[in-house]
Design a protein around this nucleic acid. Structure first.
Lengths: 213, 213
DNA sequence: CCTACCGATCGGTAGG
DNA sequence: CCTACCGATCGGTAGG
């Protein structure tokens, strides 16, 4: 058995997991993103990590618990990344751009998590589903407030701030559905371009051909 | 449970269905949109229309066949609506706007179909899944070509035409996820605003405060 | 349109 | 970590 190495690779936001537990979680991300949560059986998951089904339960509480852990840790990490990227800036254009970049960076760097997070809310039990929707609403509020602020200052030009908010988020969320790590554009290039597209969408009339920081 | 009135309300593009068959299809749309295809059992569906499970099979071939019928008729109707709205116009700005309007109109007027269409591709058997992805790609091409055309003419200003295409479609597809028929905005108002947002997203610098037709 | 029924498979447990 | 096993439920059929 090797000592360390894997510990360093483990995601920092999730509770510290054993090597096996991390393997199970990782396989679940891959299978659930590809075939959906309900379309994936515990047998599929066991085979993906080279175990029998009962052994999985040494590492997870249940299929549903694993889904909840993934959904909430993903949403919480997204909130953290967004807040880290935008604190300290008050200019709505800069905030919208940095927030979009953080969001898209997350969506493409944690593609499976984001894709599952977008699609599997319906698979959560009602109580945790409600809590997650609340977190998502809190997240949406950040964008909405930025857009309202920019519109009030005459920096953004939209006819409905609510629709512009949905439009920006819809645009950003779809990244997880098509991003190809082997494609021509890196995570950073995509994030950067989306930051500019957000500004254009919001009717920002400043320069978007170069970085307006 | 309502009696009659259903024939008049039946979608015209789908093969003509008996009253019962239309009821079953309609209930499937509601349940699948709310709880997902795999999260809905045939028992749920039977109860929704006041039948026992075996009786459903007098009206549908199988659960999977019903999904395929819904997914393909939805995609085909979307293609028709898009083409009907955009034929005869060559100006990329007008095409992008009219195409977006047609798309969003469809997404909000056929919300359940659109939502299922967006999410359940993974639930189709591999062969029909491939065919549907092909149709979706054909649909995306229409937007891509319009954006490329507009960029070539210097009407649109984006740094990646591919990303702008994904952004427009992502923005539009999300409408089915939040649209509320009882909300403040009508289907037509949402479509119109999204048409303008598409132009802004694409970096169109003409007037978007009033209708530029 | 129903009752009766079925093989397959589901997530998960017992017990070592 | 495994073998053996389980109750529940799945989509669907037989037969009238």
């Amino acid at each position: 058995m090797e000592l360390g190495g894997n510990l360093a690779d483990a995601p920092q936001d999730a509770p510290r997991l054993s090597r096996r537990a991390a393997q199970v979680r990782d396989a679940a991300l891959t299978l659930w993103a590809r075939n959906s949560y309900r379309g994936t059986t515990m047998k599929d998951l066991a085979e993906a990590v080279g175990l029998r089904v009962p052994s999985l339960y040494n590492h997870i509480g249940s299929k549903e618990e694993l889904l909840e852990e993934i959904m909430f840790s993903t949403m919480n990490e997204l909130l953290e990344k967004y807040d880290a990227a935008t604190t300290g800036t008050s200019d709505p254009a800069v905030r919208l751009r940095l927030g979009t970049e953080a969001h898209v960076l997350f969506q493409s760097a944690h593609q499976r998590e984001a894709f599952i997070g977008n699609r599997e809310i319906v698979s959560l039990p009602p109580a945790s589903r409600q809590r997650l929707v609340q977190l998502r609403d809190d997240y949406e509020d950040r964008f909405r407030q930025t857009i309202e602020d920019g519109a009030a200052r005459g920096i953004f030009h939209v006819r409905s701030q609510q629709l512009a908010t949905y439009a920006v988020l819809g645009m950003c969320n779809s990244v997880a559905a098509w991003f190809d790590p082997g494609g021509p554009l890196s995570v950073e290039e995509v994030a950067r371009e989306y930051g500019l597209l957000s500004l254009q969408l919001a009717g920002y009339r400043g320069e978007t051909q170069s970085r307006p920081r």
